[in-house]
Amino acid sequence: MLLKIDGLVAGWSRPVVGPVSLRLGAGDVVGLWGANGSGKSTLIAAIAGHACCFAGHIERRPGLRVAMQPQAPVRLSPLPVTGRELLRAARAEIDGLPPTLALASRKRLDRLSGGQHQLLSVWAALAGPADLVLLDEPTNNLDPQHTGLLADMLCARRGDRAVLLVSHERPFLDAHCTRVLELAG
């Protein structure tokens, strides 16, 4: 078991989500689905240690390595850092990049489209050393072709790690997750 959550109530200045109980093991790709304001992003932030836990507890496997990709990647301009340099900084593999992303990764990040940047950031999380990957709305800014690439990335190396991902796109979650949790608003 990589992550065990029992009766978690999480939020910022006040509780936003919970109580939630959840188990994540290697190979799991769990989707979080719910209406706006149901606390999906807050739950992920609490697991990453950013949001406050008001009740319950989160138990991580000792030595668990976590990668988190927030809803919007950090975009700066000007930014003379290439996609490859971003991936190296994230200690993510570069060799297995899909061809379209491999081409884009040689450019400066401030010269990439929103979708290319989003997908590179997701790759940085998925192809890195993390055992648990938290993805908040990874389908943002992606056209159908890039959404397909994201689906391929989620399937690759599935046995090595667990993925918890938030998305508003229920068909995407149903197609690519091992199970989907619905958060009540």
Partner: peptide, 18 residues
């Protein structure tokens, strides 16, 4: 250098691992 790049461009990665 890589640490500073990561904390600027992927700020949640290191924070999530303490």
């Amino acid at each position: 250098m890589n640490k500073l790049l990561r904390t600027r461009l992927l700020p949640h990665h290191d924070a999530a691992n303490g």
